[in-house]
Design a protein around this nucleic acid. Structure first.
Length: 499
RNA sequence: GGUUUCCUGGCCGAGCGGUUAGGCACAGCUCUGCAAAAGCUGCUACAGCGGUUCGAAUCCGCUGGAAACCUCCA
């Protein structure tokens, strides 16, 4: 069956049927982090969202080149100083030392959240020649001008020569833009307040500087993404993504730069993930309204009552659509934790169900049809702009059938072997391949030691129970509970789970 | 001030003109030595006011509230 993937395109403000430029291949660029600080949870949501998107595209069979950059230069601080350099001075470290430290931290965090590494992870400082070239191209096409060693992009001229482009992505009206731009540094050098720097001449206090035809300086705020996406994905590629807060000016200016350099649009589909909220407000490094992932994992944040594991947090994010704001609260996290553990349990149950073809008479039962419909709904949800909430809901409903099968409330013959087989695959595929979750309750690489110990302990308990020695039986159960192992007495014997 | 978006049951959160989304919490029941787990049942909401329509949470208008962007930010 051929599915149609629909993607919400910020450029047009509509959901569109996705059509790659080259059949079977996708080029996707996502704006990565600026490595002058620890990643916070909001960053993680964006990268987890695009990880899910990347995984689903792979699942659909596309060959995806996923490029996500590391920004280690180029962002101005309030006082006009490069952010990387500022961090370096405070900590008395080399700028690249700071970048390296937080890059490593970022990678660690991405691994903890079980995100797949991008195909290419280019660094801004590693692409200075490409950026200088792009400035030259833009100058050559007459869409930028030099002032005292700095080069500025000429927005009014671009708007005039390429009508309808500037402002389209962020939905901005040019006249408003022209009249409302605030006073910024170096405003005096610009011909127009809406213009923006693509090359900045260094001042004596700047550390990270490079030689260029115009001055010793550094590239402008948005240039790196334009240069690197072009280099690795071509002038026009399929998907460009990033956080909602990058829409303007970052992405708008990126579009302008690419147009300015080559006369064509950079990406066909622009995707923007929405913000993670804390206390109803955007999480942000600069205003201190943040919760770090590590605080969440260790339970040391004042905003939460307990610790939450990385996969619980990832599941929590998946319960909402990537384009909706998501308010993080202790209660919501607790709900996610229970939901996540339940889903993991259900998956174990379904994977362990025996597939018995002997009594299969070849007909499709009502239960078959209901279960198949739910699986269909799950993937329809994913096809509809990556609606993970729908997919999870379907999985939960399927879980009801699994539980009833296990509890023998549904006859095994009610579910055809191939449907059961398919259910197993669907669970496995959605939970692990697409959602990118991991079962954290797995005892892991202890070589079955825990398993063996548990069998022994539960055997003792079974003996006690057989002799109606409830005191001993309950003592074992309570002690296990105390170390976080729940014992469940079912119809077909005892099972246990780590909590 | 400008632009845009959002406002769903105790909480989180789907929904894009006509079916109970789902999860968590809560209550009752079944199962159980007791519990837990699981199952079943109940809890049926769409900020307010108008309008369009046979029919609106879903479209339009107004009012109120919130948020994002306009300035580095995922």
């Amino acid at each position: 069956m051929k599915r149609t993937l629909k993607i919400y395109n910020t450029l047009t403000g509509k959901k569109e049927a996705f059509q790659p430029i080259h059949e079977g291949h996708i080029g996707m660029y996502v704006c990565g982090p600026t490595v002058y600080n620890d990643v916070h949870l909001g960053n993680c949501r964006t990268f987890a969202s695009f990880d899910m998107i990347y995984r689903y595209l792979l699942h659909l069979g596309y060959k995806v080149r996923y490029v996500r950059n590391i920004t280690d230069v180029g962002h101005l601080t309030d006082d006009g100083e490069d952010r990387m350099a500022k961090g370096a001075k405070l900590a008395r470290l080399e700028p690249m030392e700071v970048a390296q430290k937080y890059t490593v931290g970022f990678h660690d965090m991405m691994r903890i959240f079980n995100t797949l590494p991008p195909s290419i992870e280019p660094r801004a400082t590693g692409h200075i020649p490409e950026q200088i070239e792009m400035v030259e191209d833009i100058l050559a096409r007459g869409l930028a001008y030099e002032r005292n060693g700095s080069v500025y992009f000429n927005v009014p001229k671009f708007a005039e020569t390429t009508p309808g482009v500037y402002g389209q992505l962020s939905g901005r009206v040019l006249d408003d833009l022209y009249s409302e731009t605030r006073e910024l540094k170096n405003q005096g050098e610009k011909e127009h307040p809406a213009d923006f720097a693509i090359w900045m001449k260094a001042r004596p206090e700047d550390i990270m500087v490079w030689k260029s035809p115009w001055s010793v300086g550094f590239p402008g705020w948005h240039l790196e993404c334009s240069a690197m996406s072009t280099k690795y994905l071509g002038k026009t590629f399929d998907i460009h993504g990033g956080g909602n807060d990058l829409k303007f000016p970052h992405h708008e200016n990126e579009v302008a730069q690419n147009h300015g350099a080559c006369g064509c649009a950079p990406a066909n589909y622009w995707m923007h993930t929405n913000m993670l909220l804390l206390n109803g407000k955007k999480m942000s490094k600069s205003d201190g309204n943040t919760i770090s992932p590590l605080e969440l994992f260790s339970g040391t944040s004042t905003h939460t009552s307990k610790s939450y594991s990385p996969m619980v947090v990832r599941f929590f994010m998946l319960m909402a659509h990537y384009r909706s704001t998501l308010d993080i609260t202790d209660e919501a996290l607790q709900a996610a934790e229970k939901g996540f553990k339940k889903l993991m349990e259900i998956n174990k149950l379904v994977q362990n169900l025996p597939v018995d073809a002997r009594n299969f008479d070849g007909s499709e039962t009502n239960t078959d049809r209901e279960m198949l419909a739910l699986m269909e709904t799950a993937f329809e949800g994913m096809d509809d702009d990556f609606n993970t909430a729908i997919a999870i809901a379907s999985l939960n409903e399927l879980g009801g059938y699994i539980n009833k099968l296990v509890n023998k409330q549904i006859e095994a013959s009610e579910v055809s072997p191939w449907v059961l087989e398919k259910t197993k695959v669907v669970f496995q595929t959605l939970i692990f391949d697409i959602f990118g979750l991991k079962d954290e309750s797995d005892s892991g690489s202890d070589g079955g030691t825990v398993e063996g110990l548990m069998n022994l302990v539960l055997e003792f308990r079974a003996n006690a129970r057989a002799q109606k020695d409830w005191a001993a039986s309950d003592k074992i159960r309570d002690s296990l509970q105390a170390i976080g192992i729940a014992v469940k007495d079912g119809k077909d014997g005892v099972s246990w789970t780590k909590q």
